[in-house]
Design a protein around this nucleic acid. Structure first.
Lengths: 356, 356
DNA sequence: GTGAAAGCGCTAACAT
DNA sequence: ATGTTAGCGCTTTCAC
């Protein structure tokens, strides 16, 4: 076979029109499902479409329409299961409504986030699903406001005065984690997180601390929060343990923190749950394959994506009213990495678990 | 602040033209960097652009040009680190060339793959980077050929008679894994994989088996290959072990297989590397945080993405010549999950490793 | 019921 | 050196 790819022109609406013996306008009407077209004309149009393999050019179509059927999605990264699933969901929902999703990664940079947004504005997207790097008060949201863009904010947000928001109910989930850990007898717990993501990190931390102290006022909750990146967090954590601190449990407020905590345990030769317990915000597939399986807070990706798209399309279609702020409930999966302090070997190998 | 988003019309090229006192064509020329424009006119155009905050509408621009500056990317999934990184890379490379990347997930379905491709064809994308669900002989590649589309095939492909291909050098990497395992004394090794992805799975299997048998002809290489999905593989693996088979090492040909193997080990209470060794094709961040750290073949994502885009743009710009088939070398990271059979506790906790 | 005409925002020939 | 003209492929009044 030849590698030369013959680039013959695709059939246009005019080709269909002339073959069917009608005008382009009529073809357009037939395709739009207008019922006032004479049946045999409609039939000839359908035949011509079939024979020519005609398909509308969405670009040209959008060009003429007021709004373009493109949705932009901006995620901080694509590498994690959470955002991967999110993009998959969003794409599928956009497609269902006849829209094309253009996804871009801000790679955890607010500067890039705004650049991407500007490019999407150039494309005159109908709407944007933005998962901001930090929170709802960043430059990206400001850009959207300034340019009258339609959008929904998800994940690292709480609520906004201009845009609908949808995120996991971090506070409630963290409260439940607190209940579990306190219930198992933990009274010295370390919380690790990344401070920059203010919106959700604060909610998670507060939700956890408040409940823990309420249930057991003598509980000691230590906090190791790094400002921006993962490496400083690793260093701070190392310092913390080097000082001789020996909490009986660690609650990580985000996925990478869980990984950092785990590798610090490795370094020190500590095993979960005998030497220390671990729970992380954000679940991942591997967490139930390892030994011990890692306890985690599962974020409701489908619900977040679903409600985000619902809210977005409501606005695109002209929906009025004050911005809504949704919080979707999470599921807390207690696995073998959590035990009771002082009791050796309460983690037993079991068949891998299944989510409800 | 009002939630009502004012959707004022954006400045068009004509707005700029009239403000600068020139024609739209001149504005277009200025923006294209044509040097034959009178300096003071050019300056007034720049001023007008600045004042109006004008930016070209890429849709309208593409409409008029022959080729559209859109690249389509189709991945089997977005949930894994590998494809997540791949999309990030591709997006960044497309952007560098002034193209927009539209990414879609085929969700491991060849039917969906073709549908997406048809939609991308409707968009008249300049080119497509396709990571096929199965291999280069699927319906998607056929569709691209039939419609004269420009594209590059990556990942689960070896070589094609119509399209350039870029993938990891599965065979060499697998040979190296064989060398390592044989070198450590393993003589009964189980290989697990998913058969449908014929192209790469065969290369990995053959590369491994050939080298293993060459180095130690008495080696027993068992193979558990499921046809389509992960669950049957889990079942087959369970049967295999239930029969009393006791290989000293397992080599998984893909990420999910590594996860399945790990959870089977869990179920049976086997620990790596004392009870059994494990190496997986495809690395993931968590693999160096667990205890033991899991040995893995690291695919060169950046190289694959880079060469794929290079090849694609060469074709887009009219490059001729027979299709090329690139194989990018992998890195094999031996970690604690691999030991020597019969030697207990040769896995020692070490600081987390760093990739080169 | 249907088609002619206008035009979305832009660029590439072709004049001037 | 610049403007005029003519579309890209489609949809949408608005006449007929």
């Amino acid at each position: 076979m030849a590698h030369r790819q013959d680039q013959q022109r695709r059939a246009s609406i005019h080709d269909v029109a002339s073959r069917a013996g009608v005008s382009a306008a009529t073809v357009s009407k037939v395709m739009a499902g207008v019922t006032t077209v004479k049946p045999d004309n409609a039939q000839r149009v359908f035949d011509a479409i079939e024979q020519l393999g005609y398909r509308v050019d969405p670009l040209a179509s959008d060009m003429r329409r007021a709004k373009r059927r493109i949705i932009g999605a901006i995620m901080p990264e694509f590498e994690s299961e959470f955002f991967g699933q999110m993009v998959t969901q969003l794409e599928s929902l956009a497609e269902q409504r006849g829209y094309t999703l253009v996804a871009a990664s801000s790679r955890e940079s607010e500067a890039r986030e705004t650049e991407i947004l500007a490019r999407m504005h150039d494309w005159r997207v109908a709407g944007v699903v933005l998962a901001p790097v930090r929170n709802e008060h960043g430059p990206a949201a400001a850009f959207m406001k300034a340019n009258g863009m339609t959008g929904v904010l998800i994940d690292r947000v709480l609520s906004d005065d201009a845009f609908d928001t949808v995120s996991a109910d971090s506070a409630s989930a963290s409260a439940e984690v607190a209940r579990e850990l306190i219930g198992k007898g933990h009274r010295h717990i370390l919380v690790v997180g990344l401070g920059e993501q203010a919106a959700t990190v604060r909610a998670r931390l507060d939700g956890f601390r408040t409940t823990a102290l309420q249930l057991a006022p003598d509980t000691r909750v230590d906090v190791v929060l790094a400002e921006t990146d993962v490496d400083p967090l690793r260093a701070q954590l190392r310092d913390y343990f080097a000082k001789g601190e020996r909490p009986t449990a660690v609650y990580s407020l985000f996925l990478k923190g869980t990984l950092v905590a785990l590798s610090e345990f490795r370094r020190r030769g500590w095993h979960c749950p005998n030497d220390i317990s671990l729970v992380g915000f954000d679940d991942a597939e591997w967490m139930q394959a390892t030994w011990p399986a890692i306890a985690a807070v599962v974020q409701p990706v489908r619900q977040i994506a679903g409600h985000a798209m619902e809210a977005l399309f409501a606005r695109i279609e002209g929906g009025e009213g004050p911005p809504t702020a949704r919080l979707e409930p999470c599921q807390v999966l207690m696995r073998e990495s959590v035990g009771s302090p002082g009791f050796a070997d309460n983690g037993v190998a079991t068949a891998h678990d299944h989510r409800g």
